[in-house]
Every structure is written in C-alpha cells, then in structure tokens.
C-alpha cells in the first residue's frame, strides 16, 4: 500500500540519531503531554539527579511557553485549542540540552528576542536582580510570572541559544535551547 504523500520517517530518524536525542515530540502541548514527558525526564536523566532536576524545571517553563504562545493550534476532540510545538531533550558529551520550537507571528517575536538578548547580556547577579524586579510586576495575561525565560537562564547556567527562521511575511519559526552541564 502506498501512502499518498511520501513521508520518509527514516530521514527524520537518521537526523535524530546523529545526535543523542533522548526524547522528541511534535504536536499539541497541553498538561497531559507536560506530565508524561516531565515524568519521563526524571526516568531518563535520573542517573544525574542535579541535571535532571534542572532540565525538568527548564522543560516546564519552556514547554508552557510553547503551549501558551504558539501561533499554530490543534483543536482537540474536547474542543480545546492547544498550542503546537516541538520539544527535544538531547544528551551530548558533557551536557544535556532541552530545545523547543514553535511557529510565532512576526509581530510577537520582537519582544521575545529582546528579552532573550537582555538575558544573555547579564551576568548571574544582574540576572537575579532582573528576575526580582520582573517578579514584582503584576502577572502576565496568561497568569505567568514574566520570569520564565529569566529562570530558564538562571537554572541552565548557560546563555539562551535562540534562533528565528522566517517562514513568510506573517510567521516565523522560533526555537530556543537551554544547556545544562553534566557535573
């Protein structure tokens, strides 16, 4: 039997096998996915409890951002519209990485990039001060703390590695990776 559109899963598999990808997921991201993958992070990285805890904390903040802010939605059978995105947990020589990617409206991307750039320009003490100042502000529209990305940078102890790939005049693909060094 031939599938109407050829989708070569082996290419995808090869790409992910070149690097040590522990978990990859693409699809709607809601609390059920957060729960399953969140628990699985502890199972897979449990041999390194410190790093596992950090990746879990980073995963919760970044994956929630995708679920809240992705410009691509899937409507589930229960009628809920859920943000779609990609989540990857990878293990490399001396570090773990957690990456999210999602489609964003071009007009929404500038504040996110500006925030990432501010974060990357600060040292740890400045970053903590920035977090304290932002935490005092009223909650964001999604009830968030305004401090998710700052916390990710603090937990990761590495700069945020972010990239924007234009798709067309309305949308871009935004990806952000946070590294956690192994002990």
């Amino acid at each position: 039997m031939e599938t109407p559109t050829k989708f070569n899963l082996f290419e995808y598999y090869k790409l992910f096998s070149q690097q040590d990808i522990q978990i990859s997921y693409k699809g709607p991201i809601d609390e059920r996915i957060l729960s399953v993958i969140g628990n699985y992070i502890e199972v897979i990285l449990g041999k390194n409890p410190k790093a596992s805890k950090k990746i879990f904390s980073i995963f919760i903040e970044l994956a929630q951002n995708v679920s809240f802010y992705s410009a691509e939605f899937n409507e589930l059978t229960d009628g809920k519209e859920i943000g779609v995105g990609t989540l990857v947990v990878g293990e490399f020589g001396n570090y773990y990485t957690f990456v999210t990617g999602n489609v964003v409206r071009n007009e929404d991307i500038i504040p996110v990039i500006e925030k990432c750039e501010i974060i990357n320009s600060l040292d740890r003490d400045q970053l903590r001060e920035y977090k304290r100042n932002q935490r005092r502000l009223p909650p964001g529209v999604k009830g968030g703390g305004n401090i998710g990305l700052i916390q990710v940078a603090l937990t990761s102890c590495n700069p945020l590695d972010f990239e924007v790939t234009p798709i067309n005049e309305n949308y871009s693909f935004f990806s952000i990776a946070a590294k956690v060094d192994k002990e």
Partner: peptide
C-alpha cells in the same frame, strides 16, 4: 523542593 515561576510569585 520544586516550584515553577508562577508559584514563585505567590510565595513572595
């Protein structure tokens, strides 16, 4: 032992 950033505001 763990709290997310939304919780962090409530603790404050």
């Amino acid at each position: 032992t763990y709290f997310n950033t939304s919780t962090s505001k409530c603790i404050l």
